[in-house]
Nucleic acid binder design. Structure first.
Length: 552
RNA sequence: GCGCUCGUAGCUCAACGGAUAGAGCAUUUGACUACGGAUCAAAAGGUUGCAGGUUCGAAUCCUGCCGAGCGCACCA
């Protein structure tokens, strides 16, 4: 029996009690079923009585008894205790619990997937770092988390588009071009330009690819460095992302919004909505109507559009492409944008509490030799995505970034991650998977087959098997809440718990026959449990973009 | 000054308002003559920054302080 099935059974029991006139409450839409931490509290704990007690006007324990009386009639339920303030502690019989293994194996790669977001079109925009340099550690955090979130939401049935916004218009790109030109001509980079080894590399590459560029007149040359530099840098970022296992469906050019006139059109559309006004020669959007600190300029007095106008045009573009929800993943240094972004949505006539979500990623600090590495893009000392991958590999990098919530600052100790990779939890999880594959290999050599058809679930009766089964049953719920809360780390944390439960099972429950022992149904039942567990690891690691190795 | 985010074991971090706040690392002690010891078992480690409030129940929600990070452009 899965937690979802049990939840429905409890809900039905509440309904029955209401219909019988024993309870006068509204039947809750969902009933919370959870695995209690303490084994003495049964296989599942339900707190529905505590939630209903007040509305029902009865003590929680009395409500619990009404529900429990009906649940006890159901097949598969071994025992129900009413504990503490009014928890229902439910114990299933071994066969009912063991069925979970069959459920998992039968569903295979689809196990855990759901349809909570079916029919929803969700746009995820992340990283979107300026193409004036390599992706640094802050971008890597969102690359890992954003991509995992995309995979998770897809597994929840959503129609997801992943997107990278390329800031290829504006002064930063001009400075980038100027810096490249200076480097290529052996001149010092301007005060506010970009420096670093990569500038010299790209400059040299452009000189190689565009013969005679240094003979062009200054303005033409600069334009060439600007365009070529941008092209090379974007290609470089794309390569880094693909190597990191992150795929963007759309690489969206800010410049294209200007070239197509979309920015001007966006201003007009907002004007039609009645939130645009002119003052001091500039064109403003009255974002303060929707909670922003101050109104924002769309078109400056000199006639240029602002970056904010591009943002507005970009949102409208996303909306026009049919996205119901646009998720923005921003670094902490951009959290001041939340108010104005939501105001754009409201000014466009959409619902800022539904059509847009902004996730904030706090900074990642890096420790080296016990000291924080201060990064400065302008000064050219940056930790790039390629550095991180070189040091610890894609799996460890993605995992260590995806296993923590994004709203806290995170400190990664380079020395720990480089010298003692065993400390990284990713190995704990991957090792569990490799161990299972090893058992499967041994079983195959011994000619042992275990199929869902001849599986005898009642044989999985030890506490370790029970615990492992219960953990497997949690996976769909974990996945659903990770999607709903936009928190990829829940999947990683779950896998760590599952790995612990598997390792303990492994220590205490021998799976295969030893020596020349006969193959028993218990061997086969445990082998199926191993396969079920392996399936969940493979599915879970896949959602994190981390490999599930068969050998390590 | 205003706003956003965050303060949890020595360190890095968990805990969709639930029962005795959990892992890993580091420390101490055990377990490999059969499925991979990158593992397991056990010990030790906490006034969840401080003070109030909300309720059956608060690390979680509210208020006020303290501390940290970040942001407050007709810049991008």
């Amino acid at each position: 029996m899965t937690p979802a099935e049990l939840s429905q059974a409890v809900q039905a029991a509440v309904s029955a009690a209401v219909e019988a006139g024993e309870l006068t409450v509204a039947v809750p839409e969902t009933v919370n079923v959870e695995r209690p931490k303490n084994r003495d509290h049964g296989d599942y704990a339900v707190n529905v009585a505590l939630q209903l007690a007040k509305a029902a006007g009865k003590p929680p324990r009395q409500v619990a008894e009404l529900v429990a009386a009906r649940l006890r009639e159901l097949p598969g339920i071994a025992k129900i205790d009413i504990a503490g303030p009014g928890f229902l502690n439910i114990t299933l019989d071994a066969a009912t619990q063991g069925e979970l293994a069959r459920t998992v194996v039968t569903a295979g790669a689809q196990y855990g997937h759901g349809d909570a977001f079916a029919g929803q079109k969700i746009n995820l925009e992340f990283v979107s770092a300026n193409p004036t340099g390599p992706i640094h550690i802050g971008g890597v955090r969102w690359a890992a988390v954003g991509d995992s979130l995309a995979r998770i939401l897809r597994a929840c049935g959503a129609d997801v588009t992943t997107e990278y916004y390329i800031n290829d218009a504006g002064v930063q790109i001009s400075k980038f071009g100027t810096s490249l030109q200076a480097a290529a001509n052996g001149r010092p980079v301007p005060e506010d330009g970009y420096v670093g080894e990569y500038i010299n590399d790209i400059a040299a590459e452009i000189v190689k690819q565009v013969p005679g560029i240094l003979e062009l007149d200054d303005a033409t040359q600069l334009e060439s460095f600007r365009t070529e530099g941008l092209r090379l840098m974007v290609a470089e970022i794309q390569r880094s992302m693909e190597e990191f296992g992150v795929h963007f469906d759309v690489w969206f050019s800010e410049k294209s919004l200007h070239d197509s006139g979309a920015v001007e059109k966006a201003v007009e559309r907002l004007r039609e909505q009645g939130h645009v006004y002119d003052q001091d020669g500039a064109v403003w959007l009255r974002t303060t109507d929707f909670g922003d600190d101050k109104d924002r300029v769309l078109i400056k007095a000199d006639g240029d559009t602002t970056y904010f106008a591009s943002d507005a045009a970009y949102y409208l573009n996303k909306r026009d492409r049919g996205n119901d929800v646009s998720v923005y993943m921003l670094g902490a240094d951009h959290h001041g944008y939340v108010g104005r972004l939501k105001a754009i949505v409201a000014c466009a006539g959409d619902d800022p509490s539904h059509n847009i979500e902004v996730l904030i990623g706090q900074f990642v600090k890096m420790l080296k030799d016990g000291e924080e590495v201060r990064m400065s893009k302008r000064a050219g000392n940056i930790i790039t995505i390629d550095d991180v991958v070189d040091w610890i590999g894609v799996d460890a990098a993605r995992y260590s970034l995806a296993r923590v919530p994004t709203d806290s600052t995170l400190t990664l100790d380079i020395d720990v991650l480089t010298s003692q990779t065993k400390d990284n939890p990713v190995y704990y999880v991957q090792y569990a998977h490799a161990r299972m594959c090893s058992i499967a290999r041994n079983a195959a050599e011994m000619g042992i087959e275990s199929t869902a058809e001849d599986f005898k679930p009642e044989l999985l009766s030890t506490p370790w098997e029970n615990q492992l089964l219960g953990q497997l049953g949690k996976f769909p719920g974990v996945l659903a809440s990770a999607g709903e809360l936009r928190e990829a780390h829940r999947v990683a944390r779950y896998l760590e718990e599952l790995a612990g439960d598997y390792h303990r099972f492994y220590e205490n429950c021998w799976v295969l026959p030893r020596g020349d022992e006969e193959v028993t149904d218990l061997n086969r039942a445990r082998l199926l449990l191993v396969e079920a567990t392996r399936t969940v690891f493979a599915n879970g690691l896949g959602l994190l973009g981390v490999s599930a190795p068969e050998r390590m």
